[in-house]
Design a protein around this nucleic acid. Structure first.
Lengths: 192, 192
DNA sequence: TAAAATCGTTCACTTAAGTTAAGTAATGAG
DNA sequence: CTCATTACTTAACTTAAGTGAACGATTTTA
């Protein structure tokens, strides 16, 4: 598991043994059971998550209804609302049994001040994520639910297997019934 | 104009006179006429924009149709696809006469190495933007076109005044005709 | 193991957005 | 200033998503 982390970091900066040990000394690794709620609406979160294995999900409850807005899988990082320290508007829970890195703001400040190159990695990571998310947002805006589904089928085929349909549906911005119908429609088209 | 910039920066880090002069020495300030296309599909962009005055717009052309995905107004920053150096998939143009800061990667590297605190500001800015955009994306996903319009009316009422309807419509993910209808519907409701 | 709850699909019906077309108002170029 | 273009609205029709309900098939849990 440690190697997965260091392989990931090595894409951005190179670490000395000392630096690696400093990270390992932080007690970041956690196993979390499927269904565990990591963050509830109204709670204040000071922690960041990095998925080594498994899948976590972000969702809102609006008018008693779950609205899933994101899935994070292997090597995805999730830092809830760094801006304001306002209470969370959403929930985070585990779709599967997970192995996560969980870090808090204090750890990050400590690491950043000890090893300035982390600051750089964080900036690059943020900028990368920002650009990726920008593209995702643009794709969402410029396509229909059906196109979004086909797009997801291409880009994250694993998600469609590992995540319940009704969560996928709200991730695509539609109701479960509409997803069923839309899939039937696609199947019908492909027969012709 | 310089003061608008330094007031903005001062929210994140404090600058000495030397540092301010280093920035002013970079020749960042540019006046750009309404309608100017700053970036075309297929071009490679190495520059970032920061809006001091005016409004710039990001749009795709898909099947011959403009799809607007973002508007940037006063104090908004736009850094196109820092990740890959692939050619742009979208256009950027000026909705109004603008005063922009335009910086390129070389300038940023130079400034970042001379004054490490810029690295920090960039990280904080990226993280802030990421969180803001996350929230925007979530709101978009979890609401209907009508709710999106009402939401925009609350959050960026100026946009509805300064931007053409058909650009607004595609920003909301719908056709101009649907926006007209939707507005008529809202007006009808408010009469009752 | 049996009962209850949840999940995915299907159906009929409603609502809203897409499409095509037309008309009017505003804008811009010559 | 005029003509041509573009922008916005309205309308009729089509298409697809929302809604409410029903149905097995799972999964949970008591």
């Amino acid at each position: 598991m440690e190697n997965i982390l260091f392989d990931f970091i090595s894409k951005y900066i190179s670490l000395t043994e000392d630096e690696k040990n400093a990270i390992l000394g932080l007690d970041l690794f956690h196993s979390v059971k499927k269904g565990t709620v990591l963050l509830k609406e109204g709670q204040k979160s000071q922690v960041s998550y990095f998925v080594l294995k498994g899948c976590i999900r972000v969702y809102y409850i609006i008018d008693g209804e779950e609205k899933t807005t994101a899935f994070y899988t292997e090597l995805d990082a999730l830092t809830p609302h760094c801006v304001n320290k306002a209470p969370s508007e959403y929930f985070i829970s585990c779709v599967e049994d997970c192995i996560l890195l969980i870090s808090n703001a204090d750890m990050e400040i400590e690491i950043n001040s000890k090893f300035p190159k982390f600051e750089k990695m964080c900036r690059i990571l943020s900028e990368e994520l920002l650009a990726k998310q920008q593209i995702d947002f643009d794709e969402f805006k410029t396509s229909s639910p059906e196109q979004r589904y086909l797009n997801l089928l291409q880009k994250r085929p694993d998600l469609i297997q590992r995540v319940p349909q009704h969560q996928l549906a709200s991730y695509l911005g539609i109701k479960p019934q509409s997803l069923s119908r839309l899939r039937a429609r696609i199947l019908e088209k492909s027969k012709e």
